[in-house]
Design a protein around this nucleic acid. Sequence first.
DNA 1: TAAAAATACTCCATAGGTATTTTAT
DNA 2: ATAAAATACCTATGGAGTATTTTTA
Lengths: 308, 308
Amino acid sequence: MELRQLRYFATVAETCHFGRAAERLHIAQPALSQAVRQLESELRTALFTRTTRQVALTAAGAFLYEEARRILDTLDATVQGVRRVAEGRRGLVRLGLTGSATFSHLPRIARIVKHELPGVAMEIHSDLLTPEQCERLREGSLDLGVLRPPVTGEGIGLCTIDVEPLVLAVPVEHRLADQPEVALADLHNEAFVAYGTRDSVVNQAVLRSCHEAGFAPRREHEAVGTSVLLGLVAAGLGVALVPAGARSLPLHGVVFRGVTNAPTVELALGWSQDAEAPVAASLRELILGVLRQDTTVAPTVARNGALG
Amino acid sequence: MELRQLRYFATVAETCHFGRAAERLHIAQPALSQAVRQLESELRTALFTRTTRQVALTAAGAFLYEEARRILDTLDATVQGVRRVAEGRRGLVRLGLTGSATFSHLPRIARIVKHELPGVAMEIHSDLLTPEQCERLREGSLDLGVLRPPVTGEGIGLCTIDVEPLVLAVPVEHRLADQPEVALADLHNEAFVAYGTRDSVVNQAVLRSCHEAGFAPRREHEAVGTSVLLGLVAAGLGVALVPAGARSLPLHGVVFRGVTNAPTVELALGWSQDAEAPVAASLRELILGVLRQDTTVAPTVARNGALG
DNA sequence: TAAAAATACTCCATAGGTATTTTAT
DNA sequence: ATAAAATACCTATGGAGTATTTTTA
């Protein structure tokens, strides 16, 4: 069986007239009669009852018409779909995110995706540390990652999308909650709630800047993920220095205060440089078109001490 | 686009190897390469990334493969389906039934349909009087009808499927409830609940046989449909003569008693003699194979006084 | 008898075959 | 060096055209 036969059959079924159907198909009537007869003999079933005055579908023909119509419509949609997939306007993007970016940047990204690329679905993998994301970008189980430079090794493209100062998160009842801005040195006696991973770039920035301010922060508690960390702050277990984006996660009992000469951490979009799917490329360009920072991180070059 | 191209493409997608795919398709490799290239140029999209050592689907190709697989599978199922429709093993049968047959015969019919013709769905139109069913069989809005002869006019095929004696339905507390059998003459003082339509063949049989027994039944109440009628009997409003099949509708408070020399009413299967759908024909044959009575009603011949 | 489908036949477009070349590992 | 896809070219099947016949309302 061939689609040509189905298309011809469907047109005859719709017109119930070989002559007019042939006209609509831009072929001669005998060719159409022949094609339909051929289909009938392939199926070993009459599809029409015909006299020279009356053409009507048989039960089998009516059934076939329903199915043929669906198949032909599906095919049209498929052709459109293939085009869209190829152009990156349709498909699934697996997006990795660091903990804080999930709250600060994902909503905006999701909004512009919904608006600009309505055919694109996102699979969100949040709370992934930078090295994890790189690994998964390389092995192909992630398409894009919102991560914190630096990145080591080759094959990962990078572009900075935000530079965030760290801000101080304190419990509302804390003595520093009333000050409009806090100096790092004021924190030397505070109990710190810290990110509980050695790999955390934010953690490193905190340690470095506290050291420069002349003290080592007193780590009292650790948490994995910004939301948990802020929860501990809300519970009064200590203060924390977090990327400004964490303000996007308003938590009852926590207030954020600016820090004088605050250290900054970068947020970058990363992607695998080989075998990038069209959707991934178009989403990457869309995100960078909106969020790209002048401070572009050179792709594939391992960067050290970006925050130094 | 043609199915040939989709089939070829799908095979290459499954093997990721033009040579082996061509082998599976029983064509030469160049023909396959050419067909796939043609498809790609029609879609204006690369479907494979290929080197001489590696063939892999692009994102567009992967999408097309999913859809193509579905389309090809649907097509196979459709071909099977067409065959089944043509053979009367699949489809919808619109079955009309008189009130009492709904309870006495439909369950059995439904059971054998489910067992013998699992692909056939029935659309039940119950509580239709014989003239209504004939009209709808002729105009094509019913395929088969379980009805009570006689039938007037042409074009309707008929075959008796049951001959039912009338039985007496009485309230449990009624004086006749204890007798194993009742004579018609015993009913001359009873209040009757009767079928509330002049056209009712059962009603006519009741009137005729009461007349022969020497009295005219005292109609106290009327009901449309056997279930409602029996409901009135259960409520103690009177007695009723109903086809024996009504026993299939056990109703609290009603007992059935045989009638001496009971009049009988026939039940027949009717069908339109022109433009009968294959499903209708096969269901008709199935039903008649199980229920056909020796007393076959000659088709198309108007019969009068069948119960005389 | 007139409208429409079927049949008869002719032709050429193209699917598919064989032989060969190109290319990447 | 070799496996595998692409290219070149040829052949023949069959899709579609024109002319004609058959059929039925």
